[in-house]
């Protein structure tokens, strides 16, 4: 059977069926990405809204990848569901894809609203393909990262700490909610090593904000694709599937 089909069925079971039974959970997951956006909007009197939208979009996607990691830890330790999947024809990447799709499903309302805002501020429908590909790229690499990290964390308590730490590293410290140009050179180069920096710049660019002189779309894509490939390769080869 095609892995893609298996992944869809996993997403259907853990995402759509779950939502059918708990529609309220969609409301909660839909609202949370807007909290920082709201604060920044109010504090800056609306001035900061473009950066806040770009940042919120990046942070939401990082959040879905990390939530995937949490779900996977939970399915593994609390439900032993992963044990059932390991001893079956489903491959680890298929399992990961299935759960990542279901995470995306939960995020869909918020992502849609944020994406619509990006297009609205950008003022051009032509930017939609760029926007969607940036979203998918970041979603893919963050999911693979979440899967990889979670498979190495056996204890749930530890998991929560690692996850908030990674969230800070990827969504708070680097120029995700602020412009990379405000950083001194050395820090700017450092932040170029972080995939979320590029995702944020792409969203900012889509909304018509200026991009740094030493940055280009190709560069941004290249770094993000490199992270995607890297994390997927890590997830495929180094994530713990069969325990040792």
């Amino acid at each position: 059977m095609l892995p893609a089909r298996q992944a869809m069925l996993i997403a259907y079971s853990t995402g759509i069926l779950w939502l059918q039974r708990n529609p309220m959970s969609l409301v909660f997951t839909a609202i949370s990405p807007f909290s920082l956006l709201f604060v920044l909007f109010v504090v800056s009197g609306g001035q900061y809204v473009h950066l806040a939208v770009a940042g919120s979009l990046v942070m939401a996607l990082v959040g879905y990848g990390l939530a995937l990691g949490q779900d996977i830890s939970f399915y593994k330790t609390e439900y032993k569901i992963q044990d059932i999947f390991v001893a079956s024809p489903v491959s680890p990447l298929t399992y990961m894809m299935g759960l990542a799709l279901s995470e995306l499903l939960f995020g869909l309302p918020a992502l849609t609203v944020l994406a619509v805002l990006v297009v609205y501020f950008g003022g051009s429908l032509l930017t939609i393909p760029l926007l969607i590909s940036s979203i998918l790229l970041l979603w893919g690499s963050m999911s693979a990262m979440g899967f990889f990290i979670s498979s190495h964390m056996l204890h749930m308590r530890n998991a929560t700490q690692v996850i908030s730490f990674v969230n800070v590293i990827l969504a708070v410290l680097p120029p995700v909610f602020y412009s990379v140009t405000t950083l001194p050179d050395s820090l700017r180069y450092l932040s170029y090593a972080v995939p979320t920096t590029h995702a944020s710049i792409m969203f900012q660019a889509t909304m018509g904000l200026p991009v740094p002189a030493d940055w280009s779309l190709g560069f941004g894509f290249a770094v993000q694709v490199a992270y995607l490939v890297g994390f997927v390769a890590l997830a495929k080869t180094k994530a713990i599937w069969r325990e040792t």
Binding site: T14, W18, E78, Y79, K80, I81, D83, I84, A87, S88
Partner: peptide
């Protein structure tokens, strides 16, 4: 193969 793990739980 097919398995029932010890202490598994349904979702």
């Amino acid at each position: 193969i097919s398995v029932v793990p010890q202490e598994g739980r349904p979702l």
